[in-house]
Design a binder for these strands. Sequence first.
DNA 1: CGCTATGTTGACCCGCGTCAATGACCGTGG
DNA 2: CCACGGTCATTGACGCGGGTCAACATAGCG
Lengths: 231, 231
Amino acid sequence: MTGYHAPLPSLLSRPAQAGGSAVSDPGLDRYGSVILAKRNKTVVAQGQPADYVINVVTGALRIVRLLPDGRRHISSFLLPGDFFGLTESAQYTQSLEAVADTTLIRYPRRSLETLLRTNSTANRHFFNLLCAQLTSTQEDLLLLGRKNAVERLASFLLALAERASPGSPQPQAVDLLMKRGDIADYLGMTVETVSRILTQLRSRKIIDLPTVNHVVFLKPGALRQLCAASA
Amino acid sequence: MTGYHAPLPSLLSRPAQAGGSAVSDPGLDRYGSVILAKRNKTVVAQGQPADYVINVVTGALRIVRLLPDGRRHISSFLLPGDFFGLTESAQYTQSLEAVADTTLIRYPRRSLETLLRTNSTANRHFFNLLCAQLTSTQEDLLLLGRKNAVERLASFLLALAERASPGSPQPQAVDLLMKRGDIADYLGMTVETVSRILTQLRSRKIIDLPTVNHVVFLKPGALRQLCAASA
DNA sequence: CGCTATGTTGACCCGCGTCAATGACCGTGG
DNA sequence: CCACGGTCATTGACGCGGGTCAACATAGCG
């Protein structure tokens, strides 16, 4: 992982997780350091002082929590435009690891706090971002609390497609940037089950798997049925 | 459910979920309506326009989501000081129901937005509130994704105790305001399992259940072991 | 008192985890 | 160019934790 000081075109120049409008903010950008993290590198570790906020520029990352006995859980995947480290706590409660080679910008938390105080547009933007993150985390709670393995996988695939091209009516396909173990730890299951369900969906002609990490939606409607969306 | 217009002593006069400092704000209070909701009353229903933000004054509530086939999930319980309805979406994505008789204050979302724009202390307070809520929801993700039934119940009981008296070193006891079915739907299990695990903990002399909804911690240390806290 | 909602307990079963074997892929070195 | 080793995905056999179904107990409440 390398870090060097550099101003960047603009904070939030990419679509944020909330899908909000872009906010150009040279005032924060000047404090950001660009960080390159290779696949599987830990960008921040659980327990470190939460002194920075991180914005994903390219690549993909996973937010990881570990139980003392080694059980692992992934609370979310981060894609370009997403943020990590918006917390009120003094330490990070979870680790951030690169799923693929990644470009990040790291801002001192102080700079962000200043920005939030002085720039009302940015303030509002981050507020919405947090609200959206909360809503999507609650969606995941429902998924883990009440859905079975097929429903989880269906929901996951559709959510990935939605993030790749927001608002698209009929998703065509998605690339799985992460490996099976990551999917399993995100959905609260095992690699074996993830694999089994994927082949089941393939044999039911609902999806196709031309390569291991490319999923083609053959029957997006059937997938949507399967994910047991909220009433 | 009754609603009448009334100014109140102060917004946030009670400890908020984040445990942040109280914020006196007569500017918002004048817009709040007091609402009394009896046990099992639905205060807001999933799908309604999200025009209000709600602050709990007394009682307890559950935030509920339903799947089309009737499966139910509770994403959290609200206690005095907690807020509901901080969302960027136009509709509520979940219902709010009273677990016990409850007093609430309902603020128009516009008032809150004005407050956030004009009062930087309140802005910061709500920002921290959202961050804390996100962190605690992520904790629940780990619980639902990776913990077994005993660990879930242990975590739940300790979390309840912590909310009842924050920072207390050795929790003594908690009152369960909600019924078994609510606990089950919160922890992603069934009433039967909740019941079985409670009697198991009782027979192991880790807790006692002098009445159905009063839990006494006989061995808080053992409970803490059981909850498999993060490494 | 009896009626209904809620909680407990037991017997059985099934979805998914566990364990193990095999196969596909890929980078490395001879 | 191919042999080799490591990582990752798939598939099968089996077992268990917790869900399901049913009976019973208990507690509010008219």
